[in-house]
């Protein structure tokens, strides 16, 4: 089911959380709402769920106005940032909750409810812990229980608030790949909120970048990364360096022992992080003392034999950055 957001605004005690936002989420897509904390992304998600009432604007589900519809009737699955599992219920009872509270007419009988709850737990690979309490699970397991619970009511829309926010890095990576695969299997229209660029770019079909209550850009991960529409998007999606008034990404800087062209600047290596296929090098420009971050491919790094304290020449590669960012001077790195 598609979601359409039309001119939605929401104000909280003096601050404009969401400011006249319009957005279309086509049926079956996995969309990321990405932005720094306080940009209004969670508020927007909660408005779609019906947990917050917008001051202005409408929410359409499948073309029908759902703005006035009560949370209970919206049939959304919501995964909370801290999971909000019912602490006194077993994992199975948590998953079964949404079915058990249905009015008698469309409530399946108890055996059927249990069967469906077990089925969902199998889907999230957790059937073995059905009898445990949420507190007896790890963070990653809790997160999957929360997902199974949200899916149990067969939601038309799945909304996830920072779903991987409180997990450690390893579990986080595993889980987001798993979420991507799960979405490819069940194809429910999904929106997830995140402040993690990598997560948004890796998992979603489309990324919506928000800042100060407004949408800065909507596009596929490749689009927003390669063709950022605003300076905010460009800066937010990766570290940037400033060369001759131009913003340059760390991997768009060439490192050489000799000056390559007139725009090259001399810099001193301050710190090297030689992990993985890409080596990150921090340098200080000799002329201005400003710090620059550069990413070098591993073979290039070995070829250069970089050492701390070495002086090398940096030159920005031809960039695709729209000139309008470079033209504006206030950019500082």
């Amino acid at each position: 089911m598609s979601i359409a957001i039309r001119g939605v605004s929401k104000r909280f005690a003096g601050s404009q959380a969401v400011n006249d936002v319009s957005l279309d989420v086509p049926a079956g897509e996995l969309v990321a709402l990405l932005g720094p904390s306080g940009c209004g992304k969670t508020t927007l998600l909660r408005i779609v769920a019906g947990l917050e009432v917008p001051d202005a604007g409408t929410i359409l589900f499948h073309g029908e106005d759902a703005t006035e519809r009560h949370v209970r009737e919206r049939r959304v699955g919501f995964v909370f940032q801290h999971y909000a599992l019912f602490r006194h219920m077993s994992v199975l009872d948590n998953v079964a909750f949404g079915l058990r509270v249905r009015p008698k007419i469309d409530r399946p009988d108890d055996g059927e409810i249990r069967r469906r709850a077990h089925e969902l737990l199998q889907l999230v690979h957790l059937d073995g812990v059905a009898a445990r309490l949420p507190s007896e699970l790890s963070g990653g397991q809790r997160q999957r229980v929360a997902l199974a619970r949200a899916l149990a009511v067969e939601p038309s829309v799945l909304l996830l608030d920072e779903p991987f926010g409180s997990l450690d890095a390893r579990v986080r990576k595993q889980l987001r790949r798993w979420l991507r695969r799960l979405h490819d299997e069940i194809h429910v229209t999904s929106v997830f909120v995140t402040h993690d660029q990598e997560e948004a770019l890796e998992v979603s079909d489309r990324v919506v970048i928000m800042n100060e209550g407004r949408i800065e850009q909507v596009g596929t991960p490749t689009q927003v990364y390669e063709e950022p529409a605003t300076e905010f998007v460009y800066r937010f999606l990766g570290d940037v360096n400033l060369f001759h008034g131009r913003l340059v990404r760390p991997h768009d800087v060439d490192v050489a022992r000799t000056a390559q062209g007139a725009s090259a600047v001399l810099a001193e290596v301050r710190h090297i992080r030689p992990f993985g296929a890409v080596v990150r090098v921090e340098l200080d420009r000799v002329d201005e003392g400003e710090s620059v971050e550069v990413e070098v491919a591993r073979d290039r790094y070995l070829e250069l034999a970089l050492q701390k304290g070495d002086r090398v020449y940096l030159s920005p590669r031809v960039t695709q950055i729209p000139a309008r960012f470079g033209g504006e001077q206030p950019a500082q790195t």
Binding site: A49, G50, L51, V71, R72, V76, G77, F78, F80, H82, A84, L85, F86, R87, H88, M89, F97, G98, V101, R102, R149, A150, A152, V153
Partner: peptide, 24 residues
């Protein structure tokens, strides 16, 4: 949060109190 979760899952006010708040 737990009450909100129950609400989204379709529970009525009384069901939320009876099944979520009261046991806690």
């Amino acid at each position: 949060e737990e009450e909100e979760a129950a609400l989204v899952l379709g529970a009525s006010g009384w069901q939320i109190f009876r099944r979520v708040t009261l046991p806690n």
